[in-house]
Design a protein around this nucleic acid. Structure first.
Length: 292
DNA sequence: CACTTGACCTGTCCGC
DNA sequence: TGCGGACAGGTCAAGT
């Protein structure tokens, strides 16, 4: 379930851990589903290349190489990018990592660096993928063309948010903020958390949400996304950062995975779990009364 | 076109 | 204990 804060946490870790390292070999364990490029292309464009940057757009990670090729990765629900260091260089696998010895049965790709360290792409459910693109073609990927603005950019103002989401007036507010073409990076956790923050029921139709409420929702969205980045993301089951460690946002969650527990605003009232937009949805029945 | 639902996967949990 | 089925949820294709 990596969303914007989890992917950004992985990006920051990888930026620190792999930029400047040189790739020696790439082992592919699940082709073509998890990694469709041919071995010949990998040998020609990746072997000997140096990592020059690690970027993020929405929930997609871009690992840029000195050869002007880019590894594009989407972790989807259970994907992990875990760097395993080398004891000789004092960057060994952390002892508090949630990850056992790698590769394991979920490993789809392993990228070995010339210093003996390795980056593993693991994905239990095989929904995620990693693909090699010539750098200039990355922006032509369908998803990149249609994905909406980054919600944490200063240019993403209430005015921009409102004008974009009003194109989805007839659907529910939860479906609208999960729509990656409206804004980038929000998934189930932060949708529920921000809607509770703004005191809006997730199944409210967008047309019945006022501009003022939408402005409040954007403030709450930016707040939970920033807080989650600060806490290193949310680890429910599978998510780990680039060192294999868990994130702690879930300890600060107000509604997500808290069904049956008290609403922070209303001691004595418990969070309920329902289904909205096809997803498990958590609300406080007092803060967020269901629409008629 | 706007919107909703099912498919893609595998591990886990629950009820019988 | 074993087993079937529901569930987890990001994105895309197919359906209404």
């Amino acid at each position: 379930m990596p969303e914007l804060p989890e992917v950004e946490t992985v990006r920051r870790g990888l930026e620190r851990l792999i930029v400047g390292r040189s790739i020696k070999t790439v082992m592919v364990y699940d082709s073509p589903k998890s990694f469709p490029n041919t071995q010949a292309d990998v040998e020609q464009f990746v072997y000997g290349a140096t990592i020059v940057a690690v970027r993020r757009r929405a929930k997609v990670l871009l690992i840029e190489l000195s050869t002007n090729y880019t590894f594009v990765t989407h972790l989807k629900m259970t994907g992990q990018l875990v760097y395993v260091g080398n004891e000789r260089f004092g960057a060994g696998h952390p002892t508090d990592s949630l990850i056992g010895s790698l590769p394991d049965r979920s490993t789809r790709v392993a990228m070995a660096f010339d210093d003996g360290t390795t980056l593993f792409f693991n994905d239990q459910r095989k929904f995620g993928w990693m693909k090699l693109y010539p750098a200039p073609e990355v922006m032509n990927i369908d998803f990149m063309q249609k994905v909406g603005p980054e919600p944490l950019d200063d240019s993403f103002t209430a005015k921009v948010f409102i004008s974009r989401i009003r194109h989805r007036n007839n659907t529910t507010i939860k479906a609208a903020i999960l729509d990656q073409t409206v804004l980038a990076g929000v998934g189930n956790i932060y949708a529920d958390e921000s809607l509770w923050g703004a005191k809006i029921h997730p199944s409210t139709r967008v047309k019945n949400v006022s501009d003022e409420q939408l402005s409040t929702l954007l403030v709450e969205l930016k707040y939970v996304l920033n807080l989650a980045i600060e806490k290193g993301g949310s680890t429910d089951k599978n998510y780990v950062n680039a060192e294999g460690k868990r994130g702690s946002y879930i300890d600060f969650a107000r509604v997500f995975r808290r069904e049956g527990k008290e609403c922070p605003r209303h001691p004595g009232t418990v969070i309920i779990k329902t289904r909205v937009a096809g997803r498990g949805t958590h609300t406080c029945p007092i803060c967020q009364p269901a629409p008629l």
